[in-house]
Design a protein around this nucleic acid. Structure first.
Length: 254
DNA sequence: GCGACAG
DNA sequence: ATCTTGTCGC
């Protein structure tokens, strides 16, 4: 029933074309999350083995409510614009191990601020059906004016004549982050949530927590060959069936 | 043709 | 993404 994971760039592009129509818009205020899930992936130096983490935080207190990690392999080579095909299988596996269903997914990358308006946040939102948005550290597409110097200041990220995201200053005098809608959420809400989650640091607490969790899992899997021993509250796996290595010759790097 | 190019 | 600890500055 499930379409096979794309092996070539042409196949991946076709998948994006098909899924793009399923992205849903949302009115401002439609999403008032009590919890968010921070998602991130860490790679082994071989560029193939990886660990993915999903950490659920209470939006108000930033307390970790749930956490799940999984280790596996990159499902596609890194190609700007096709980035999601590399991490989606592992991230879905991690999300599937959570006991608490997060109200919104905070992705490490872009949503519609993408050449074909279907970045990682859109992809994860569509396949999970959950509200989702992306917070990226660097731009992929678009132009913008330097936002004000104060935390909370922002500027429109424009591409192809449309606002595809917002460049947001989460801390005074610090390089801004790029926020864009993924699925079922309004850009203004995504920006507010991002600022609320980024208090002491540039990146949202959710992203930082996920980054720390997958890095730790990667070490555990590399050194001990097993993970999840550090904390009994963490659910993890040392294998990842579907997320096998990319094969074939039409997609570049391996 | 020459860069740029999420992680 | 990853290679990488201490250090300069507010």
């Amino acid at each position: 029933m499930n379409a096979p994971w794309p092996t070539t760039e042409a196949e991946a592009l076709a998948v994006q074309d098909a899924l793009r129509a399923r992205v849903e818009q949302a009115a401002e205020g439609a999403v008032v999350p009590r919890t968010v899930a921070g998602l991130d992936v860490a790679y082994h130096e071989d560029g193939e083995r990886l660990a993915a983490a999903a950490v659920v935080l209470d939006v108000r207190t930033h307390e970790v409510v749930d956490l799940a990690v999984t280790v596996g392999r990159a499902a596609f080579p890194y190609v700007p614009g096709l980035f999601a095909f590399r991490e989606v299988p592992a991230l879905l596996d991690a999300l599937g191990r959570l006991r608490v269903e997060p109200d919104v997914l905070v992705c490490d990358g872009h949503g519609v601020a993408h050449p074909r308006r279907f970045g990682l946040a859109c992809h994860l939102g569509v396949v999970t059906g959950r509200p989702a948005f992306g917070v990226a550290k660097t731009p992929l597409v678009g132009a913008w004016a330097e936002p004000g110097p104060t935390r909370g200041d922002s500027a429109a990220l424009v591409d192809g004549g449309e606002e595809v995201g917002r460049v947001v200053r989460t801390r005074d005098g610090v390089k801004p982050v790029f926020v864009s809608v993924g699925h079922r959420i309004h850009l203004g809400d995504a920006v507010k949530i991002t600022i609320g989650l980024a208090r002491g640091f540039r990146l949202p607490e959710s992203t930082r927590a996920a980054d720390q969790a997958c890095r730790a899992a990667l070490r555990g899997a590399t050194v001990g060959g097993q993970i999840g021993s550090a904390s009994p509250a963490v659910r993890g796996s040392a294998t990842l069936g579907p997320s096998t290595a990319h094969r074939g010759k039409g997609a570049g790097v391996v």
